[in-house]
Structure formats: structure tokens, C-alpha cells
Amino acid sequence: MPGHAAAIPQGDLGRVLAQRERRFAAALLAPAFLALLATTTFPLLFLIGTSTFRMDLAMPFADGFVGLENYRTLLADDRFWSSLLVSLIYTGATVVLQVALGLALALLVMDMKRGQGWFRIIAILPVVLSPAVVGMIWRTFMLAPEFGIVDYLAINAGLGSKNWLGDPTLAMVSVVVIHTWQWTPFAFMVLLASLASLPEDIYEAARLDRASAWQRFRRITLPLLRPAIVMVVIMRTMVALTAFAAIFTVTGGGPGTATEILNLYAYRKSFTELSIGYGSALAVALLVVTILISGVLFALRRAK
């Protein structure tokens, strides 16, 4: 149609082309956005709806609209507050450990001339595995009393056999260690990549100024690495808050509710105790917590 278009005045041609581009864009976007609306936005609205109902699959006769009743129950629910606390401990501990260990290892490996390739390959292994498989392996071959390797090492070290997943404190430590084991390679890989992209000449100048290794790290590496570190923290926080398989398959939230993060509480309430209405309110609370925490983290990223 180029011959035809030439007859149209310049301004109109631009408008016609822009309109065509818009229509083309709309056609290309439509399938994906309809699918996203159907699988994310619609469930969210539905969820907010069910959170205002009493809905018990075990006792359907008592179902009905209750307004904000579920949320009032939630605020007075000790198990909710304790699961929120467990979430914050789990998230805080795993994220700090991942970043600290990942950064330390990246700094150690960075100057390695040989053997770096091994790290790059091996770091991939835990990260690509399903958290469900990881949980299963740790629960059995690593932590099972008198069978798992960790228990074997503990016995040989004179600590004696421990109930790694049956004791509340040890169970919490175990799920934190498992999550850290799986995802430290992620922090390591990202931070190693950013370290490799830092400009060499600043370090030369610092060396000429006789700055010590610690000074170079504090004054140069850390500030330059800050954006990458903050990015890792944000991503890992979002993931840890909604971790499911990594805890569900190892302790199921137990013993009791010792490792029950808010995400798991919402699941257990909905699908084990079959209180869908209250479970929905818990899921909405989790969404609110996620938004609040990510809001704080994004504000931190913008600061300075």
C-alpha cells in the first residue's frame, strides 16, 4: 500500500501509521494479557471475595457471608502472629546468610585463575533443582536420625544423635540451612558476575594509595556492589516469604507450628483444615505483608 499512502498528507500518514501500530500491538498483547488477567487478577479478586465468607469444606451448611469477621479473627489469632514471626525469622536468616556467604565466596573465587569454572558449574546444581526434591533429599539422606549423613557426623563429633526435624529449634535451623544451601549459589553467581564487571583502574589507584585490602573492600567494592546486593536481597526476600515446598516437604510446618511460616499456615488452614474462607484471609494478609516489605526494600534501593 505504499503508493496509496503517498497521497495522504504527511501529518495524517503519521497518525494512520501510529494507529496501525497500536492495533498491531493490541493484537499481539491480547492473548498473554487475557491469560494473565484470568490466572492472576481474577483469582486475586475472587480471593478477596472468599475472605469475606465463612467457607468450610468440612461443614458446608454453615457457609455464608461474614464481612470482615475473618480479619477480626485473624488479628486475635495467636497462630497467625506466631506464623508471621516465623516468616520474618526464616526470611531474615536465609537472606542474610545467602548474601553473606555468597559474597564471601564470590570474593574468594574472583581472583582464582584455575578452578573458577568448577564453581560456576557446581553452583548451578542446587539452583536448578526443585525445592521439593531438595527438601526430600535433606529430610532423608542428610537429616534422618541414625541414617542421615549430618546425624552420622554429629554422632562422630560426640554430639550424639539429634532429632533434627523433631525438635522445634533444630527444625527451624534445619529448614533455614536447607533454604540457604539451595540458594546461596544464586547470590554467589550474581555477585561474582557483578564483581567481574567492576572497573579495574579504581583498584589500581587504591593500590597506589596503599589502601589495605579491607579498605579497598569497604570503600570501593561494597559501594559499587550495592545495587547488585540490594537486587539479590529483594529477590530472595520475595521468594523466602512464599517458600512452600522447601518447608512443606521437610517438616510440614512442624513440629507443631515451629516452622509454620504464614504462607504454610494459609495452605494448612485452607487445604488441611478445609477452612477456605479463613485461609483466604490469611493469604490476603500474606499479600499485604509482601507488599509492605517490598515497599520498604524498594525505598531502600532508591535511597542514596
Binding site: 498483547l29 481474577f42 480471593l47 485452607s270 500474606l286 517490598s294
Partner: peptide
């Protein structure tokens, strides 16, 4: 549109599965 695609990821999976299970 770009922001929307990112924001959908904020929704916890457990919040998606409850309504979807019912439907």
C-alpha cells in the same frame, strides 16, 4: 502494561491456588 506483568508476580501462589481450587 510492563508494570502489570511484573506486579502479577507479587501475588503469593497460595493466594492463587485457593480460588483456583474452588473454580
Amino acid at each position: 502494561a510492563g508494570f502489570y506483568v511484573l506486579a502479577t508476580q507479587m501475588l503469593p501462589p497460595v493466594g492463587i491456588i485457593i480460588p483456583y481450587f474452588l473454580i
